[in-house]
Amino acid sequence: MPMPVEALEQHLREAFPDAEIQIQDLAGDGDHYRARIVSTAFTGLSRVKQHQAVYAALKGKMGGELHALALETSAPEGT
C-alpha cells in the first residue's frame, strides 16, 4: 500500500518542526517521492547523517509503504 503525501509530510514535520519541506510525487503512484528539507536539525551534520535522520523519522516505512525517496537536505544558510 502506498504512502499518501500527507502521511509523509506529517512524519517529516513531527521530526523537523522548523523545516521548510517540499515534496514531489515523481511517478503519481504514492511510492516514489522527492523531498527537499531545510532544517536547523541538520546544522553541523554530514549529508549521510542528515539522510539517516530523515529515514529515522519515517519509522521503518522506507522500503515498505514508501518505495523510493530522493532526498535533498540542508541546514538553513547562515547556521
Rank of each mutant, 00 (worst) to 15 (best):
M1L: 06
M1W: 04
P2A: 09
P2L: 03
M3G: 07
P4Q: 04
P4M: 04
V5T: 03
V5G: 00
E6K: 05
A7Q: 07
A7H: 05
L8I: 01
E9N: 05
E9S: 03
Q10D: 10
Q10E: 10
H11M: 04
H11V: 01
L12H: 03
R13S: 04
R13H: 01
A15G: 14
F16L: 04
P17Q: 02
P17T: 00
P17S: 03
P17N: 01
D18K: 03
D18N: 06
I21C: 09
I21W: 00
I21A: 06
Q22E: 13
I23N: 07
Q24T: 07
A27V: 02
A27C: 12
G28A: 13
G28Q: 11
D29H: 03
G30W: 01
G30N: 04
D31A: 14
D31E: 13
H32K: 15
H32I: 10
H32Y: 08
Y33A: 08
R34L: 15
R34S: 15
A35T: 06
R36E: 14
R36M: 07
R36L: 15
I37C: 11
I37F: 00
T40R: 15
T40K: 15
T40C: 11
A41Q: 12
A41G: 09
A41Y: 00
F42K: 00
F42P: 01
F42R: 02
F42E: 02
T43N: 11
T43Q: 11
G44Y: 05
G44N: 09
G44T: 07
L45E: 06
S46N: 07
S46R: 09
S46A: 09
R47N: 06
R47A: 12
V48T: 09
V48Q: 11
K49E: 13
K49N: 13
Q52L: 12
V54S: 13
Y55P: 12
Y55H: 14
A56H: 13
A56I: 01
A57Y: 08
L58N: 08
K59Y: 07
K59C: 14
G60T: 05
M62F: 10
M62D: 06
G63D: 05
G64K: 10
E65N: 08
L66W: 03
L66R: 01
H67N: 12
H67D: 09
A68K: 14
A68Y: 01
L69I: 10
A70W: 03
A70L: 15
L71N: 08
L71P: 07
L71A: 10
E72I: 00
S74W: 04
S74G: 15
A75W: 02
P76N: 13
P76L: 13
P76S: 14
E77I: 12
G78D: 06
G78R: 12
T79K: 11
